[in-house]
């Protein structure tokens, strides 16, 4: 298939599946709270609804940066789709994409001029502490497989079995990272309800829909990377089942835990990182 067509198809799948998985999370969380909850396609419907709503652009917004930063979020996660499913490139690029995501959260909050956005902007800087476990995961994967390239990691796992069993603590650290990106998670300090919607508070209509599209793609990509790096070569059904399982698990955790305050959120993530790093090194030395 033509490369551009492959990219377009993968972006479309990432958006649709990511939206459905977000909707499924909301449904599960509602059921745990003994509510019926919205339909599973609600997140997708909301995205499309916001996309065609009348939009307002705040007077305090730093134009055109305020619009450009929403575009940047979409651009980085389209890059992730290219690095991941399309080209199966280097995990280091994925680390860079995740770092840029933090920068976008920061700047989306500050560009709107809203005090809630500014609080979220500061919390986005704090939450860069989540980069520590991600960096640790990449190093541990490199130490185990001698490569950072996704296609080579898949080949390594085809020969030696899933990395989930050889470096389980790295998988736990990556899972904590995924959890930090899930809605209503204990680590979702940039979009906590105590600051309304954080950096998204003053993004209305089209821009809110645009941000939701990017977040759906981001969710799909985080799950895809986790499954590919820790489970190895999977078919379409394998990815579907894996993504469903991860989304259900995060929904259970999010429904039963409170959102931590920013300091506690960072300390917990950094603690997980330290346990993961030292534990993984000990395991690698022992075996």
């Amino acid at each position: 298939m033509n490369l551009m067509a492959t990219i377009l198809l993968n972006v479309l799948i990432a958006f649709l599946l990511g939206s459905i998985l977000f909707g499924l999370q909301r449904k599960i969380m509602a059921r745990i709270q003994m509510r019926p909850g919205p339909p599973i396609i609600q997140h997708l419907l909301h995205t499309l609804k916001f996309f065609v709503k009348e939009s307002s652009f705040p007077r305090t917004a730093a134009m055109p940066f305020y619009v450009a930063i929403a575009s940047m979020l979409c651009a980085i996660w389209v890059s992730a789709v290219i690095v991941g499913p399309v080209a199966q490139g280097s995990l280091l690029l994925f680390f860079g994409i995740y770092a840029l995501h933090k920068i976008v959260e920061h700047n989306a909050g500050s560009s709107s001029g809203s005090p809630y956005g500014k609080l979220s902007c500061v919390r986005a800087v704090f939450s860069a502490a989540a980069e520590v476990p991600l960096f640790a995961v990449l190093i541990i994967i490199y130490l185990q497989t001698n490569t950072m390239v996704i296609s080579d990691i898949i080949s390594y796992q085809a020969a030696n079995g899933p990395l989930l069993f050889t470096i389980p603590l790295a998988a736990v650290m990556f899972f904590v990272l995924i959890l930090s990106k899930a809605p209503y998670s204990p680590f979702a300090i940039t979009k906590g309800k105590d600051i309304i919607s954080g950096y998204e508070t003053e993004h209305f209509g089209v821009l809110r829909g645009y941000l939701m599209i990017s977040e759906s793609i981001a969710w799909y990509m985080l799950l895809w990377v986790f499954l590919t790096v820790f489970f190895g070569p999977l078919g379409v059904m394998g990815y579907l089942v894996g993504m469903l399982a991860l989304s259900v698990l995060t929904a259970f955790i999010n429904a039963t835990t409170p959102i931590l305050n920013p300091n506690h959120s960072i300390m917990v993530q950094v603690t997980f990182a330290f346990i993961g790093i030292f534990g993984s090194i000990l395991l690698m030395l022992a075996f």
């Binding site: 377009l8 709503k53 009348e54 939009s55 651009a75 389209v78 209509g205 089209v206 645009y210």
Partner: peptide, 15 residues
């Protein structure tokens, strides 16, 4: 691709 999505949204949004 992001530019396409943004421009489509700005064209289709209600006024």
């Amino acid at each position: 691709i992001p530019l396409f999505i943004l421009s489509l949204g700005l064209i289709t949004m209600a006024r």
